[in-house]
Amino acid sequence: MTNSSGANLAQPDVSSRLAGWGKVLGIFGLLVAIVVTTGAMNPRFFGAENLENVLQRTALFGIIGIGAAFPIVTAGIDLSIGSVIALVATCLPPLLDAGVPAGPAVIVVLLLAAGLGLIHGLLITRLGLQPFVVTLCGLLVYRGVARYIVDDQTVGFGDSYDGLRTLATGRPFSIGALDVPAPALVLLAVAVLAAIFLGRSVWGRWMLALGRNPTAARYAGVPVERVTILAYVICSLLAGVGGVLFALDVNSVQPASMGNFYELYAIAAAVLGGCSLRGGEGSILGVVLGAAVMRLLYNSIVLLGIPSQLEFAIVGGVLLLGAIADEVVRRLAEARRARERARARTERTT
């Protein structure tokens, strides 16, 4: 193989633009398959009420899934998401009851969440602690603090603060018979910003680079520590956003159970959406689709009358199949690369 002129090389070629979309297409295919099967077996699936419900839940889990994707891209992990949700959700009602206006109250809890992310990031980069350990401790600590703050009592917003609750329960506009839930718009905004950040910004590229090879990134002058810290701040901040919306959605926050396991749903959505736990790979669109697949699976289980005890088994099975399919595709790609290399070598020698 030889180089043509530099000008030609600089042209973006179509195949490279399409590369990386494979995983997203795969998860999209899975989503379509679930929609078609469930819809065919139970027409109620396509009812406006059901779709709104799925959309609402997808939006909430999509937001925290996008958050979870950032540490994963850096080859880290955040296990504290569910407890951050619980802490934010339990702090918000007392703040409002104490007379803090809605806007500032939300900002305060979001800053609290971002601050927790900052602490995670600092412990991981400055002290060199493992992300798993730091955020596992976070998971335990924030849950405990949340329960202590409200003395394990269920808190809620009652009938007041309806204006604020519109954020989670509002239906600002309709597409046909479908009233679009407000959180879907929040998800849209978060997803667009996150996708631009990860796909187009310098910091996003740095994040992907250090996920691939932190040493090489450091040697290339990437501010590795700051970028890593930012990933944990974004994750906790989005967990905070999720916490506010979840709390407003259910209107009755039980500190002991609120957000339990949500970090695992968020991580599952990210992984299903194509984020590799080895770091360096991730697509925001994929994560949103991953969250949608998870919610659709739950929805199907209900609509198709599958025993609800099997919920976890089915979701786990689908995740496992996804991981297996991903590995098979990766090996095929590797074999293709090896062939390319061989061809390059023979062409060099002839």
Binding site: M1, T2, N3, S5, G6, L9, A10, D13, S15, S16, A19, E340, A344, R348
Partner: peptide, 11 residues
Amino acid sequence: DRLGVRTSGIE
């Protein structure tokens, strides 16, 4: 181009 990297393209 400058270094003569033998590659099928920049991707």
